[in-house]
């Protein structure tokens, strides 16, 4: 039996009236990959997830999981998911909720094992309604893994979690991926995508606008930011300093983007000795994200790295 990709989206399109929520998305994810799906609100992430699980019908194109119809992957328990707007019954306990879903699957983990993996064993007898945001997400994670899936789809799994809860959540996720399983997660937290995923897919306005490793995506914005305070600055001549690619002025604060911050700094100090409060910081995932999804940039359609 040939190894099928965990996910294959081909020309996937979903229109709601005149709005095109997902626009001709092509995406192949191999077993074992951990992929972050990034994008601003309304980028089409959640709709894409609905489509790839077969919860919504595509207007055009198709979604396959393990080479078959998504419903087949669900029925055979190969895919588990934490969805937006999907929740557990407030009046049941954590154990009862998991047991209900457990009973529907053919070859599930035991309820105990699922609770163990999600770190909710100590919450077994608690009512769902009494859980904190972070505990609730972990209970939902237990429900998502109880079918013993090969693929996990998580839509903003760490929303409503505090820092400690996020930390322990990703720890249990790492155990899951260490077994060679596939994870696709949508998130707003760029640092999560950066540290956890080995591939980042960025969506904007229903399209995939970047697809690559975290370092490839970050390389969209190379160089560093050099900022300083300078009275009566001449923007035009500052722009001509060595290595400068972009200049921004906020009052008497100047923010330069530079491809060669060392050279820019030397030229700056030589030409403008009165510059004070100088800071040099590397550009980060946020900058890459803004550069790729920002409405004003024409580079928004730029593709990086490993996009098929």
């Amino acid at each position: 039996m040939t190894r099928q990709p965990a996910i294959r989206l081909t020309g996937l399109t979903k229109k709601f009236g005149t709005l095109t929520a997902v626009n001709d998305v092509h995406l192949t994810i191999q077993p074992g990959e951990v992929v972050a799906l990034l994008g601003p609100n309304g980028a089409g992430k959640s709709t894409t997830i609905d489509l790839l699980l077969g919860l919504a019908r595509p207007t055009d194109g198709s979604a396959e999981l393990f080479g078959e119809d998504p419903r087949h992957a669900i029925v055979t328990g190969r895919v588990g998911a934490m969805l937006q707007g999907g929740a557990l019954l407030p009046t049941t306990t954590v154990r009862e909720s998991i047991a209900l879903i457990h009973a529907l699957h053919k070859h599930p983990l035991s309820v105990e094992e699922a609770m163990e993996r999600a770190g909710v064993a100590d919450l077994a007898k608690q009512k769902i309604a009494s859980l904190s945001g972070g505990q609730m997400q972990r209970a939902r994670f237990a429900v998502a893994v109880v079918s013993n899936p090969d693929l996990l789809i998580l839509d903003e799994p760490t929303a409503a979690m505090d820092v400690a809860a996020r930390h322990s959540f990703w720890a249990s996720m790492r155990e899951f991926t260490d077994r060679g399983k596939t994870v696709v997660f949508a998130t707003h937290y760029l640092d999560e995508a950066d540290t956890f995923a080995d591939r980042i897919v960025i969506m904007s306005q229903g399209r995939i606008i970047a697809d690559g490793t975290p370092s490839e995506v970050k390389s969209v914005v190379t160089g560093r930011t050099v900022s300083f305070t300078l009275d009566s600055a001449d923007a035009a001549s500052l722009q001509r300093l060595v290595g400068v690619t972009h200049l921004e002025q906020r009052g008497n604060r100047i923010i330069l983007q530079s491809e060669d911050s060392d050279a820019t700094l030397r030229a700056l100090l030589a030409g403008y000795p009165s510059a004070t409060d100088i800071e040099i910081v590397p550009r980060n995932m946020d900058d890459a994200f803004m550069a790729l999804t920002g409405p004003s940039t024409s580079s928004g359609t730029e593709k990086t790295g490993a996009s098929k």
């Binding site: 699980l53 919860l55 669900i74 029925v75 055979t76 328990g77 895919v79 588990g80 998911a81 969805l83 707007g85 999907g86 929740a87 557990l88 019954l89 407030p90 879903i101 529907l104 699957h105 053919k106 429900v143 079918s147």
Partner: peptide, 16 residues
Amino acid sequence: NERSVGWNRQLRITPL
């Protein structure tokens, strides 16, 4: 009630 909390969405990703 079950629908409004999202339980039905949860059920949709089971073999039921």
